[in-house]
Design a protein around this nucleic acid. Structure first.
Length: 287
DNA sequence: GGCCAGGTCCAAT
DNA sequence: ATTGGACATGGC
């Protein structure tokens, strides 16, 4: 197999892929098999060296966001001491640039779900409606283009639940070209446009803007971020999501979304916020 | 077994 | 302008 290499300082593939922004990867002894758009490709990282095949460097740089100024981003976020713990927990975590349609569908699928299930749902949709693709001995299925995702009953059979109707509506609007104009709009207009899609409100729209359109200011507020932000910056008092977004925008500006991803990953994986007692004494059996 | 999961929508304050 | 429930399904 003919693989290529690329030097990628200040970048961590594992943290980037496993931080919950992307659902189309499988790890195989150190290497990641990835699906994006019509491509199935493989990437591994050893130190600062990326080895890849199945895609060209132009594609890889765009997808992994290697064209972002990491040094500048890090320096800027580091000015905030309250972020240090999260930054140090996953140094090199970057924001991907996903395919807009796939990302929209993925985060509609994510509604009131969890990462393992989301990944399974997406893989099921790809297997059912996508196109088979291979890379050497590895095989997969591309995520279905919008014209193939018009089968609500079928999606319900795949256990998408109430998300099925949202997905077919999103596919219909994608066919009409709604995702193509987003890139040229202001943040506010882009968000309003995305929110025309049934199943896309504030949170999902911000995920799509952040993970597919490179709008690093977008700050998705989900249940984890809400919890972290309220504890860290609002003295534990619950506040409207709107207030959290406003605070993040004020504090981190154009990089709020990057801060968000570090906080999200850290809050879920560090144990700092998952400290529900794993083992309470077993309640006495009644009867 | 009830609660919660990278929420959204709609109806009733 | 806020708030409560319904919406499917699965894991713990």
């Amino acid at each position: 197999m003919n693989s290529s290499v690329h030097h990628a300082p200040r970048f961590n593939l594992k943290h980037t892929l496993e931080s919950g922004q992307f659902f189309r990867y499988a790890e195989h002894h150190g290497a990641y098999l990835l699906l994006r758009g019509q491509r199935l490709f493989r990437v591994r990282q050893d130190g600062e060296t990326l080895t890849y095949d199945g895609a060209d460097l132009w594609f890889l740089r765009e997808f992994l966001g290697l064209d972002q100024d990491f040094a500048l981003i890090e320096r800027s976020l580091r000015r905030d001491r309250r972020l240090w713990e999260a930054l140090d927990f996953a140094p090199g975590l970057r924001i991907l640039r996903q395919d807009p349609w796939e990302c929209t569908a993925a985060f509609i699928t994510s509604i009131a779900s969890n990462i393992p299930r989301i990944s399974g749902n997406i893989a099921d949709m790809a297997r059912e409606y996508g196109v088979p693709i291979r890379l050497g001995a590895a095989e997969g299925h591309t995520f279905p283009r919008p014209d193939r995702l018009d089968d609500e009953a079928g999606l319900r059979r795949l256990k998408l639940g109430f998300r099925a109707a949202y997905l077919v509506q999103a596919a219909r609007l994608a066919r009409s070209g709604i995702l193509e104009e987003i890139g040229s709009l202001s943040y506010d207009d882009a968000k309003d446009t995305l929110m025309v899609i049934p199943g896309v409100a504030e949170k999902v729209a911000d995920c799509v803007l952040l993970f597919a359109y490179g709008r690093l200011n977008a700050f998705p507020v989900d249940t984890w971020i809400r919890k972290v932000m309220i504890r860290m910056f609002f003295k534990g008092r619950r506040v409207p999501d709107r207030a959290i977004r406003a605070f993040a925008s004020e504090r981190w500006g154009d990089l709020a979304g990057v801060a968000q991803q570090y906080l999200y990953h850290w809050s879920r994986r560090s144990g700092a916020f998952t400290s529900r007692p794993r083992s309470l004494p077993a309640p006495a059996r009644t009867r």
